[in-house]
Amino acid sequence: MNAFRTLATIVGGSLKNNATIECDDHGAEFFKVEINSSMDKAINHPDLTFLQGLSCRDSSSSTFGPLTLAQLSHFECGEVALSFCMLHKVGDACSAYYFLRDWARLTRDPKSTLSPPYFAMDSLMPSPFDGPMVSPVVEPKMEGCIHQRFIFSESKINALKVLVVAESCWLSGRIEKLPHLFPNSITMMVLSFSGLTEDPMPILEMLPNLRNLDLFRAYEGKEIISDNNFSQLEFLHLTELEKLKRWLLGTNVMPLIKGLGIHNCPNLKEIPQRMKDVELLKRNYNKW
């Protein structure tokens, strides 16, 4: 249990004001049970191993139950199973997976070094310095709430599928952070007026079929680094990247490049040596 408590510093805390977790090790409950059946029966009857009559209380309850529940089940055949329940305010299915993975790692080797928990959401929407909430959250009131259900027709779903396998992607307008999950089918990418502050190249260069890349007022940084891949890229436009000063290019990057257009990038005084022999492209402003 000591290893479990060390691992469960956060998920084993108490919920305060419906918004803040107190890391006091009071919120986790652990059960060890024996089941008089073999594990093969549990495959068809998972309720045999899951926590019976227990649940993490919903925030609508005046008294919060445990944030996490864990159960270790011993079968008569000698096998064991782990069951785990977590309040969604604390984590999701991915959090539960990493919890069980690290728990298993500690069981095999109590001296294992675990990585600290990583919360991706906080990197996207950072919490204020004085805490996640400046005042307690008011308890939700269900009276007067309106529930809506959205039903999408088959034609709308099919149209969405077409976008997923689209070969061209045009993104116009400010983007806080460039997503990583672009479909591999994209052959042409246009980013305009994005205002990105992080170099987009490390993400874009991983698109395996990208042949045409156009950055129009898309990046506000001073440096772009292309040190990997762009294996199919043939045409590259860099337009009105006014703060750009340096462009670093790896030796084997962009092996198929045929055309390069650099327009109104006043601070970019030098381009990679290998790009100096590439055909220069003109900018067609009519489409903007």
Score class of each variant (00 low, 15 high):
Asn158Asp: 11
Lys141Tyr: 14
Gln148Asp: 12
Asp130Pro: 00
Glu154Asn: 08
Pro136Gly: 07
Gly131Phe: 02
Ser155Leu: 06
Val162Pro: 00
Val162Gly: 06
Val137Ile: 15
Ile157Gly: 00
Met133Ile: 13
Ile146Cys: 11
Ile157Pro: 00
Ala166Ser: 14
Pro128Asp: 04
Ser168Pro: 03
Lys156Leu: 03
Ser135Gly: 06
Glu139His: 11
Glu167Asn: 15
Val164His: 01
Lys141Met: 14
Phe152Arg: 01
Ser127Gly: 03
Arg149Ile: 11
Glu154His: 06
Leu163Pro: 00
Lys156Gly: 00
Met142Val: 15
Ser155Gly: 04
Phe152Cys: 04
Val164Met: 03
Glu154Met: 07
Pro128Asn: 05
Leu160Pro: 02
Glu154Ala: 14
Phe150Lys: 02
Pro132Phe: 05
Val138Ala: 13
Ala159Tyr: 01
Val137Thr: 14
Phe129Leu: 14
Ala159Trp: 01
Lys156Asn: 03
Asp130Cys: 02
Val134Asp: 15
Phe150Val: 03
Val162Ile: 09
Gln148Glu: 10
Ile146Val: 15
Gly144Leu: 10
Gln148Val: 14
Pro132Trp: 05
Ala166Val: 10
Ser135Asp: 11
Val134Gln: 15
Ser168Thr: 12
Val165His: 08
Pro128His: 03
Phe129Ser: 14
Phe129Arg: 06
Gly144Phe: 08
Pro132Asn: 11
Val134Trp: 09
Lys141Arg: 15
Lys161Val: 01
Val162Tyr: 00
Cys145Phe: 06
Ala159Ser: 12
Ser168Asn: 15
Leu160His: 04
Lys161Ala: 07
Ala159Met: 10
Glu139Arg: 11
Ser127Leu: 15
Leu160Lys: 02
Leu163Asn: 07
His147Gln: 07
Gln148Ser: 13
Arg149His: 10
Ser127Val: 14
Ser155Asp: 06
Val164Tyr: 02
Ala166Gly: 07
Phe152Gly: 00
Ser135Trp: 04
Leu160Arg: 01
Ile151Arg: 04
Ile157Arg: 04
Leu163Cys: 09
Ser135Arg: 12
Phe150Trp: 05
Lys156Met: 07
Lys141Val: 15
Pro128Phe: 08
Glu167Asp: 09
Cys145Met: 14
Ser168His: 14
Phe152Glu: 00
Pro140Gln: 11
Lys161Phe: 01
Val134Ile: 11
Val162Phe: 02
Val134Met: 08
Ser153Glu: 02
Lys141Ile: 13
Met133Ala: 10
Ile151Pro: 01
Glu167Ala: 14
Gly144Ile: 10
Glu167Gly: 06
Phe152Val: 01
Pro140Arg: 06
Ile151Phe: 05
Glu139Val: 12
Ser153Met: 03
Gly144Gln: 09
Ile151Lys: 04
Asp130Phe: 01
Phe150Met: 03
His147Pro: 08
Ser168Arg: 15
Arg149Phe: 07
Val164Asn: 02
Val164Trp: 00
Ser127Pro: 01
Val134Gly: 12
Ser168Lys: 13
Ala159Gln: 06
Cys145Gly: 05
Asp130Val: 00
Val138Asp: 08
Phe129Tyr: 03
His147Arg: 11
Lys141Cys: 15
Val137Ser: 11
